[in-house]
Simulated assay, not measured.
Amino acid sequence: MTEKTGTFLVTHADEGSAVLRDVSDGQVHTMASNPDVEERDVLEATIRPQPPMEVAWEVVEVEERRAVELVDTDLSPTTQAMEIAAEQAVGEVERVDRAGDGEIHVLSVPPERTADAAADVLDDTGTLERAARLGAVRVEVRADDDEGVVNVRYLPD
């Protein structure tokens, strides 16, 4: 095997090892040691398998290391999000490019499930993987319990 360069989410870290998931293809790489990372870190890095068996990996170089802040905000969904939600059925998700960088997701849910849906988004590893792919450093979740709208904003800064 050869070196692999990409964006990785640290899904597990302890003092002796770490597990990195490539956010472009979902492939999981177990590190032979912990390269000074913590769970939920995002790395732009190059890794390579360690000989002789090449089942564990090592970090060759880290170009960038960042954390993704997950924020459950008390703010209401944006006007744009509310307009999108008004046009979609319960259970649908609309993804929209954000002006500038980032992405906005609008989820329509039953009003009584709004808080649970917002909590699920914050607890989902997929949210962190998407943020890593998009280059986001902050994920902001806004909800409107009366309308059943969850607005997820992937923000670059």
Score class of each variant (00 low, 15 high):
Pro77Gly: 07
Ala81Trp: 02
Val68Asp: 12
Leu75Glu: 15
Thr46Val: 01
Glu83Pro: 01
Val62Leu: 06
Glu44Asp: 09
Glu83Ala: 08
Leu70Ile: 07
Arg48Phe: 00
Ala45Ile: 00
Ala85Arg: 09
Val55Leu: 12
Asp97Glu: 11
Gln88Trp: 09
Thr46Met: 00
Ile47Thr: 03
Leu75Ser: 11
Arg95His: 09
Asp72Gly: 08
Arg66His: 15
Val71Tyr: 12
Val55Gln: 13
Glu69Trp: 01
Thr46Lys: 02
Pro49Arg: 07
Met53Phe: 14
Pro77Glu: 10
Thr73Phe: 03
Glu83His: 08
Asp101Val: 03
Thr73Leu: 08
Ile84Ala: 10
Glu64Tyr: 08
Thr78Lys: 05
Val96Arg: 03
Glu44Pro: 03
Ala86Arg: 14
Met82Cys: 09
Asp72Leu: 05
Val62Trp: 05
Val71Arg: 06
Ala45Pro: 08
Thr79Cys: 05
Thr78His: 03
Pro51Val: 12
Asp74His: 14
Leu75Lys: 10
Asp72Lys: 06
Glu61Leu: 04
Thr78Trp: 00
Val60Asp: 04
Ile47Pro: 07
Glu69Asn: 04
Pro52Glu: 14
Glu44Trp: 11
Gly91Arg: 04
Asp101Arg: 00
Pro51Glu: 13
Val96Cys: 02
Ala81Pro: 06
Asp72Ala: 10
Ser76Gly: 11
Met53Glu: 15
Gln50Val: 05
Thr73Tyr: 10
Gly100Glu: 05
Arg65His: 02
Gly91Val: 10
Val60Arg: 03
Glu69Ala: 12
Ala86Ser: 14
Leu75Gln: 14
Gly91Asp: 10
Val90Arg: 00
Val93Leu: 13
Trp57Gly: 00
Gly100Ala: 04
Met53Ile: 10
Pro77Lys: 02
Thr78Met: 04
Gly91Asn: 06
Pro49Val: 07
Ala99Leu: 06
Glu64Arg: 15
Val71Leu: 12
Asp72Pro: 06
Val62Thr: 08
Val62Ala: 03
Ala89Ser: 10
Gly100Thr: 03
Arg66Met: 12
Val93Phe: 06
Thr78Leu: 07
Leu70Gln: 04
Gly100Phe: 00
Glu83Met: 12
Val60Thr: 09
Arg65Asp: 00
Ala56Phe: 15
Arg98Ile: 01
Gln80Thr: 12
Glu44Asn: 13
Val55Trp: 12
Glu58Asn: 01
Arg98Trp: 05
Val96Glu: 15
Asp72His: 12
Val96Ser: 08
Arg65Ile: 01
Met53His: 10
Val60Leu: 09
Glu92Leu: 10
Glu69Ser: 09
Leu70Asp: 02
Gln50Tyr: 04
Val71Glu: 13
Arg98Glu: 02
